[in-house]
């Protein structure tokens, strides 16, 4: 059961008690019992699948997430160093299974971990290591047989990660999947011009487009899994990052042959409007992750413009004073937007 649903049930109980005490609403016994039974069944399902949700448990969950990341990193490093240390002593017939078997074994272990430990932290660690092992698998086989670099390696790793992420609802692994499929999608931009595939990464418009697609289609891409937030975060980061760089250098643009100042200026305008739109849409649709990315991008954008405009001709202490004032202005603006949002709610 989602945390928001649990919170809603608790708030409903408290408000119902108040309304009954104030004589505004009194439910009939049969209605009260039906609601109570329904909520009890929801809570039972929660107890079976995960720990009860309290502030202490939430703090522990945050700690477990950090431990998950560190665990995934440490296990991946152990695997990579083991392969590196023993590589020279092995024949080709031993080298191939050493790199091809781990992703398969770890994918199966992800299923075992997800079944035995319902909170899925262990499954998340195992799946992350599986994805990294699969990426190592492709790199090493490519190196062993001198295969040309291929964009499809990104798609393969992305699909592998997504199979595990959707199969067991693992958000961290989904981020790797989005990254892989997103890079592949970005690399397709070289096809119309017939250029070498990796040259697509020299132009950032396709990255911005990829981010936009991830945001707009977030619900559809997530399907029945609770992954819309992950798509929006990754999409927002791609869109904001691309526009920030395009506003800074026309060399990263499709239009690099045109007047650089015009291209950069145009992207600065587009960027400013996009960051404002990200904050507004995020507030209206209650997408806090998009508000954070939009705010961060808008702040970085302002700092970059201030550097362009003022760095060379005002004293440094005054420059940082201006930056501080801008930061305070952003805080006040967001506070005002939040208050307005609260009043509307």
């Amino acid at each position: 059961m989602a945390r928001s649903r649990r919170d809603a049930i608790d708030a409903f109980g408290e408000e119902l008690a108040r309304l009954e005490a104030e004589g505004v609403l009194v439910l009939r016994q049969v209605e009260r019992e039906r609601v109570a039974a329904h909520h009890a069944s929801l809570r039972t399902a929660q107890d079976e699948s995960e720990a009860p949700d309290t502030p202490t448990v939430r703090r522990l969950a945050a700690g477990m997430r950090i431990a998950t990341l560190l665990g995934a990193f440490a296990l991946s490093a152990a695997y990579a160093l083991f392969v590196d240390a023993n590589w020279a002593a092995l024949s080709l017939t031993a080298q191939l299974p050493l790199v091809m078997a781990p992703p398969i074994v770890l994918a199966i272990l992800t299923g075992v971990a997800a079944q035995r430990e319902p909170s899925r932290y262990v499954a998340s660690v195992v799946a992350t290591v599986a994805v990294i092992a699969f990426a190592v698998n492709l790199i090493v086989v490519g190196s062993l047989f001198n295969l040309p670099e291929s964009r499809h390696a990104f798609l393969a790793v992305g699909l592998f990660a997504m199979a595990l992420a959707y199969g067991y609802r693992l958000a961290l692994v989904l981020v790797l999947g989005i990254l892989g499929v997103g890079l592949w999608f970005w690399s397709l931009a070289s096809i119309p011009s017939g250029a070498w595939w990796s040259t697509a990464f020299e132009q950032l418009e396709p990255l911005a487009l990829t981010g936009l697609v991830a945001i707009v289609l977030s619900r559809r891409l997530a399907g029945s899994a609770p992954f819309a937030d992950e798509y929006r975060v990754m999409g927002s980061l791609a869109l904001a990052g691309a526009l920030l760089i395009l506003g800074q250098t026309a060399n990263a643009s499709y239009f690099h042959g045109a007047d650089g100042r015009i291209v950069e200026g145009a992207y600065q305008v587009v960027g400013a409007m996009t960051f404002a739109a990200m904050i507004a849409v995020g507030l209206r649709r209650d997408w806090p992750e998009m508000v954070r990315v939009g705010t961060g991008a808008a702040f970085i954008f302002l700092v970059m413009r201030l550097v362009d405009w003022f760095w060379d001709w005002i004293p440094k202490w005054l420059f940082f004073l201006v930056i501080g004032a801008v930061a305070m202005g952003v805080v006040l603006l967001l506070r005002r937007l939040r208050l307005r949002q609260a009043v509307q709610a």
Binding site: L138, F145, L147, F160, A163, L164, Y166, G167
Partner: peptide, 24 residues
Amino acid sequence: MTRGWLGAVAVAVIVNAAMLLPVY
């Protein structure tokens, strides 16, 4: 859902085969 690993294993097997068969 308990067989979610099957999709990942299928991707790994197909991709490795797609790399190794042309080499062979």
